[in-house]
């Protein structure tokens, strides 16, 4: 077991996979000589050379498109799109190409590629560097989407993504960049598609992912003092969703709160709520509550940012409301 920061865990995963498999390569803006905009690719150029650690121009569609073609031709490229907001420029290659080629080739051509991208939420990055677009990605058949909230998961999910036979978008949280955590010895691969219980509790399930997990945990600690035991479930993978993990937790707690930094409409929270309202219907003792960003732009100034992204107190309030609620209320 080693303790390291989130970004160092990302760097370790890239280093380990580049060393393990000669078909792995890394490409993106500033990934080589500059060592990555935030340091995650530092040292890779020297260790693996300029062909496998490929500095690119600023051309997101091209970067992702090159990764698609390289993957079709037998490599396992890890393309970096510096901020999730920039995915807009690369969506055709990701959605119309990478995600569809297996089906359109009758299963004969796979696209084993990774797009690493950073969510800048919570770091005063503003309207075009702080958005959370995971719902766009989770809406596409053929794309997998993961988001680690700890150094161990940042490493383990990235490694799983690189080894996966399908295109995977790996989202990383800039607000967790300097956060330390234990990273296991050995391979440390975290399977795609499995949520993790971060804190066990019997009264309510709080589903979160990315940096919101930590605010959900802070809320749970506050609530503990009030006699409310909240279970915090870290989704880790947004597509394919760990339906069993969510339903199992809901079955135990019978109440559900979903937290994310993305806006609410058509978001992941709606998907989880639909799961609860469908397959989990008999387990629900209270309405599902979503705690999301308001349906407006991401602000830059810290005071508004605090209002925008769900903070622990807002999450705690939501939990209190569902714990108080009774399903039978208002019914005869």
């Amino acid at each position: 077991m080693a303790t390291m920061k989130y970004w160092q865990a990302v760097q370790l995963a890239l280093k380990e996979e580049l060393a393990r498999d000669p078909s792995v390569c890394v490409l993106g803006e500033d990934v080589g000589r500059a060592g990555g905009a935030f340091g995650a690719t530092a040292g890779l150029l020297g260790a693996f050379g300029a062909e496998r650690v490929r500095d690119t121009p600023i051309c997101e569609a091209g970067i992702v498109g090159v990764a698609v073609g390289a993957a079709m031709a037998g490599l396992r490229p890890v393309a970096e799109v510096m901020f999730m907001d920039f995915l807009g420029l690369a969506m055709d290659q990701l959605v119309n190409q990478a995600a569809k080629l297996r089906h359109m080739s009758a299963g004969r051509i796979g696209v084993p590629m990774v797009v690493r991208t950073i969510c800048g939420a919570g770091r005063q990055t503003g309207p075009q560097h702080g958005q959370s677009f995971e719902a766009w990605l989770g809406h596409v058949p053929g794309l997998k989407v993961v988001w680690g909230s700890t150094p161990a998961d940042a490493r383990g999910l990235l490694k799983a993504a690189i080894r996966d036979a399908d295109p995977v978008v790996v989202i990383e949280s800039l607000s967790l960049w300097g956060q330390s955590g234990d990273v296991p010895e050995g391979d440390g691969v975290v399977p795609i598609g499995r949520a993790a219980v971060r804190r066990a509790g019997r009264d309510v399930t709080v589903v979160a992912y990315g940096s919101a997990v930590h605010r959900a945990l802070a809320a749970a600690r506050t609530l503990e003092g009030e006699g409310i035991e909240a279970e915090v479930l870290d989704l880790r993978t947004l597509n394919p969703l760990d339906e069993d993990g969510v339903l199992e937790s809901l079955h135990r707690t019978r109440r559900l709160v979903v937290v994310h930094d993305a806006v609410g409409p058509c978001g992941t929270g709606a998907e989880i709520a639909a799961l609860a309202a469908g397959k989990g219907y008999r387990d629900l003792d209270a309405p599902v509550v979503r705690v999301t960003a308001p349906f407006t732009l991401v602000p830059f100034v810290p005071a508004l940012e605090q209002l925008y992204f769900p903070q622990a107190e807002r999450i705690a309030d939501a939990v209190r409301s569902v714990v108080r609620a009774r399903r039978s209320e208002g019914r005869s």
Binding site: S23, C25, A61, V66, A70, M72, A73, Q93, Q97
Partner: peptide, 21 residues
């Protein structure tokens, strides 16, 4: 490709792979 221009970066990627391989 049914997307105009969609195949160009892919071809670059395949060429990149060929050289790396």
């Amino acid at each position: 490709n049914a997307i105009v221009g969609g195949g160009l970066p892919m071809a670059v990627g395949a060429a990149y792979a060929a050289r790396l391989q």
